[in-house]
Structures are given as structure tokens and as C-alpha cells.
């Protein structure tokens, strides 16, 4: 069984609620009541969603999406 090799995290001090990550990777991000994003669960990226995670990072205007290799 394959497992995740990557984790996403939204830096709450940087996020301004542009919602790009949620639009590009709804499997990985959710929004709070004022539209700021956070990673779903512990942010582990399920196999097959690595490209979407990278896309979310590459389109965040505030550089708030952080990717770490596990």
C-alpha cells in the first residue's frame, strides 16, 4: 500500500483568504468562517494528489502554502 510522501500546511499569519488553494485542491484545503484556508486534517497529501498540492503552492499570492517532503 502506498502512503503519502508530502504534507501541506497553511501559514495562518500569511493567509489572506485568496482561496486559490481551495479552488485548485479542494481535497487538501478547507476554509474557515472568514474564508482563510487551512489544511484538511494533518495535511498529509494522499498519493496521486502531489501535483495538486504543488499547484496550490505555486498559486498562493501570499506564499502561505507550505509543502514538506516526508
Amino acid at each position: 500500500m502506498s502512503h503519502s510522501t508530502m504534507r501541506v500546511h497553511v501559514d495562518q499569519d500569511r493567509c489572506q483568504g485568496h482561496n486559490r488553494c481551495k479552488a485548485l485542491a479542494p481535497e487538501l484545503f478547507e476554509l474557515g468562517e472568514f474564508g482563510n484556508a487551512r489544511e484538511i486534517g494533518d495535511g498529509a497529501v494522499p498519493p496521486g494528489l502531489e501535483d495538486k498540492a504543488a499547484l496550490a503552492r505555486a498559486n498562493c499570492p501570499e506564499f502561505a502554502v507550505i509543502l514538506t517532503e516526508l
Binding site: Q16, L55, A58, N59, C60, P61, F63
Partner: peptide, 10 residues
């Protein structure tokens, strides 16, 4: 693919 534009401000 990669577009961190500032059209809506920063």
C-alpha cells in the same frame, strides 16, 4: 500554471 498575481491586492 504558476500564477501568484496581485490583481486582488496583497
Amino acid at each position: 500554471k504558476e500564477n501568484r498575481h496581485a490583481a486582488f491586492g496583497l
